[in-house]
Design a protein around this nucleic acid. Structure first.
Length: 400
DNA sequence: AACATGCGCAACCGCCTGCTT
DNA sequence: CAAGCAGGCGGTTGCGCATGT
């Protein structure tokens, strides 16, 4: 059906706004009537503009809660990471950068960040290193970004799961909301949930999806480091972990989401034991090890996983063994391994791995030190508040 | 000094979704 | 149920300014 442009009416001004026009619009909205109806606003405010133009001018420029000026390096990083995760969903990205508009972020991406990534040898659309154009040293420099880009696949999986969950939920009374009638919620785009302004209360179920997504972001923003000690053991851990700031409890088992914790390094374990510890939750599912990169000699891998089940409880011990076997010579092989857990709530993992590769039959252990999963709204709200207060570096997960 | 080129960004355009009638 | 309206979103344009020749 579409909608005809509202500026086609004769006599309506277009182009750059004058200070006088700005003042009229500002004065009308702030001191008189707000902006309940953009279409009716221009005439009432004495502006020869269409309502759409007024709305854009207000939201992108005149609104008092807009931060203008140079983007900080932290904002740069956030935009790049979010773009890798969300693509060109500028409104969704803007919700994670307080006081920045989607239009400003979009412009900044197109004029600065895109070029910067290109210079670094990163394809700005895929966030992967451009192939065949880089030396190994450069590849190392950009490995982290490549690693980040791998989370995109995890995100897509999570998003598709969210859509499936939404479909199921839409059949229940839980989704009885005017904005989410069954046919609409069955196609609930995650981006819509993300794009919802925080000042507008989200429908509770959508809030859960929203905060789960933030959890993904949080996990994704961590960096993994792998070091090898003097005894020939590799130790892999997530960096910058802090003490918990709140206690989470898991109140329902509605959602099935996955977390993915990745280990990156060289000559990582071939026979591994995974010990998972969780609390206040019921976790069922299958964990898998997966080589994300092709081993050096392209030998096939034999990966086995065991189904795990646990019970609920205040303090639950979840022991789970996974064997990862491969039959290629590990020497010189560099690859990435993925360990994923699926649970009723979102989990993000923290793990430590000790791998002994000092003999010809390398073994090692991979021990999870804690998980954080989707909890109730209040706790997640605290978490979100911390993010918007730019305190992400001081955040930690409850059980780390 | 004059012109060309590049850049940044505000603003526009067209499409989409959801709501109302 | 269809049509129209309002607002939101992402892609694109074009103006103004800075820089280069």
């Amino acid at each position: 059906m579409g909608r005809s442009p509202c500026c086609e009416k004769l006599g309506l001004r277009k182009g750059t706004w004058t200070p006088e026009e700005d003042q009229k619009l500002l004065s009308y909205i702030e001191q008189q009537h707000g902006h309940s109806s953009w279409r009716a606003l221009p005439a009432k405010a004495g502006l020869e503009r269409c309502g759409k133009s007024c709305r854009l001018r207000w939201t992108n420029y005149l609104r008092p809660d807009i931060k203008r000026g140079k983007f900080s390096s932290q904002e740069d990083q956030t935009i790049i990471q979010l773009h890798a995760l969300l693509g060109n969903r500028w409104s969704a990205i803007a919700t994670h950068l307080p006081k920045r508009t989607d239009n400003e972020i979009k412009n900044y991406w197109n004029t600065h960040l895109k070029k910067r990534l290109t210079k670094m040898g990163i394809d700005p659309s895929t966030h992967r290193p451009k192939t065949n154009a880089l030396g190994s040293a450069h590849q190392k420099d950009t490995a982290n970004l490549s690693h980040m880009a791998q989370w995109e696949s995890a995100r897509l999986e999570a998003e598709s799961r969210l859509v499936r969950e939404s479909k199921l939920l839409s059949l229940s009374t839980a989704f009885n909301h005017s904005h989410l009638s069954p046919p609409a919620s069955a196609q609930l785009p995650l981006a819509k949930a993300l794009a919802s302004p925080l000042v507008t209360p989200l429908e509770p179920m959508v809030q859960k999806h929203y905060f789960h997504c933030l959890d993904i972001l949080k996990a994704w923003q961590r960096t993994w480091t792998t070091t090898k000690n003097a005894n020939g053991f590799f130790s892999t851990a997530i960096g910058s972990l802090q003490s918990p700031t709140s206690t989470l409890h898991f109140s329902d088992n509605t959602f099935a989401m996955s977390s993915a914790a990745r280990l990156t390094g060289e000559n990582l374990p071939f026979n591994s034991t995974i010990n998972c510890e969780a609390r206040d939750m019921k976790a069922t599912g299958t964990s898998t090890w997966q080589y994300l990169d092709t081993p050096k000699n392209n030998d096939p891998l034999a990966v086995t996983g065991e189904k795990m089940e646990s019970t609920t409880g205040n303090m639950m011990q979840l022991n789970h063994d996974v064997n990862v076997q491969c039959d290629f010579d590990p020497v010189g092989g560099a690859y990435t391994m993925e360990f994923s857990l699926r649970s009723p709530g979102f989990m993000e993992g923290f793990a430590d791995a000790d791998i002994d590769d000092s003999n010809n039959n390398p073994t090692g252990s991979y021990q999870s030190l804690g998980y954080r999963w989707g909890g109730d709204l209040e706790d997640n709200q605290k978490y979100w508040n911390n993010i918007v207060n730019e305190e992400i570096s001081a955040l930690g997960s409850p059980f780390f």
